[in-house]
Design a protein around this nucleic acid. Structure first.
Lengths: 244, 244
DNA sequence: ATTAAAATTCTTGTCAGACAAGAGAAACCG
DNA sequence: CGGTTTCTCTTGTCTGACAAGAATTTTAAT
């Protein structure tokens, strides 16, 4: 692999660019698991940067589980199974298709989270859910849109599903979506009437969960997500997901 | 925040430890979005390490979207919505509960992926799925267990669902699970009879997808995942998920 | 006094050079 | 030929240095 080809542009930091280039090479399959990278000094020479920069770049790749470095040997490429991170980068918030796929993903997760929550919730979780609903109502009365309570509702529900992996991931996914929602609501504030409709959607989910009715929890949550997607102008969430 | 409390142990690299400590502080809420960290020089002093180490630690946190650094200002804490990575670290492969949660997660995703694939697949994707099945059969005849083809089947199916976020994430999740499966099969190779049963499970999914029957695709895939979990000795996948 | 311009001062980004520790490779010795 | 010692390479860490950029302060001008 000839690293000299990587002529570097000045915009991101050098370490950024080197990391991007090398990780690109690795994911593109230019190296196999077990291969070793040239030594830091050599890389520094080939990229025409200092060893400091190379080290910072490699540090990231190690952190991501792409590399592992041993003294005397150098940095060895790890197997894919060692990869430590999942990134939802380069999503184009403006792109309705991307947002649609994100909503589809969210729907798939949240409908089953609601179903699980219906069967696994504790009493204290239910009372916190109820509090979130009350808070949302109060917020709407006071003229706000209750986003904070909305988000809290979903977080508590995820907790009630008692699968930390699910909950953690939903949190990550939600962050991406909430940026958009927040943005939309800033430009086009919801009128109280609509806000009340949203509140009702949450109430339906709550009732289903409180009644330990997994199927109903699933379907009401799905409707809620679908409506939420519509409110964001996303129409592509597929029927299949919306049905089941 | 008093960084001096972070007395550092010699095992991981210093940068590792510093990064861990600071990121812990941040996720634990010791800093709010917009706060700025002390300058690298100051941090170096407080941690009792060189600036090099601090820089490498901060580089990772920046990469993860926890920080952003500006000249003259320093490193500012970013909002949670900026976080760029999801990690499924510290899963205890040995722990059947953790593995159960992972399987639960996988079931939730794959059943809907199968349903979507039933509605969105292209002809070429179906022929590749079919090839995977044939390959699996051949592999079993030759005495292997057909893991590679098994994995390929799931990957192609995910592609057929036409939601890249879903597919990418499933890939990530699967890696974690396949490490375990691979391990199990090395210790306790599947006998051909069982392998054929697994093959049949895949065939059922294939038929449903080929027939564009989303509901059937969902249920057959779910049964497959459930059986797979059982074969790994995981019994905790919850009824709710298994039903719908 | 108010505003615009210039000098100052931090902080990050990058570089260069240094050395210890560990691990493999090579040389040496029995 | 096998085992031990020495050598050498690479990473991990430290130090000191300087440019560039941005905020702050000072200075100058109206």
């Amino acid at each position: 692999m000839d690293f000299k080809k990587a002529r570097i542009l000045r915009s991101k930091s050098l370490a950024d660019q080197v990391a991007e280039f090398i990780s690109g090479q690795i994911t593109r399959g230019a190296f196999l698991a077990g291969d070793v990278l040239p030594s830091e000094t050599v890389l520094a020479g080939e990229f025409g940067v200092s060893r400091t920069v190379i080290r910072e770049a490699l540090a990231r790749l190690k952190y991501d589980g792409l590399l592992e470095s041993q003294k005397r040997t150098g940095a060895v490429i790890l197997d894919h199974s060692e990869r430590r991170t999942f990134r939802l980068d380069e999503i184009d918030i403006e792109n309705k298709d991307d947002l649609g796929r994100l909503y589809e993903f969210r729907g798939i997760l949240e409908k089953d989270i609601a179903a699980l929550a219906a069967e696994r919730h504790s009493e204290s979780q239910m009372s916190r859910l109820s509090d979130a609903l009350l808070g949302m109502e109060r917020a709407i009365d006071e003229g706000s849109d209750g986003s904070a309570e909305d988000l809290a509702f979903h977080r508590i529900l995820a907790e009630a599903a008692r699968n930390s992996y699910l909950a953690d991931f939903l949190k990550y996914l939600d962050r991406k979506i909430w940026v958009v929602i927040h943005d939309t609501r800033r430009s086009f504030p919801m009128d109280p009437e609509l806000a009340r409709l949203v509140l009702d959607e949450h109430r339906e989910v709550y009732e289903a969960v409180a009644g330990c009715d997994a199927e109903k929890a699933r379907s009401t949550m799905l409707r809620h997500i679908r409506c939420s997607a519509c409110r964001q102008g996303v129409l592509t969430v597929h029927q299949t997901v919306l049905k089941g």
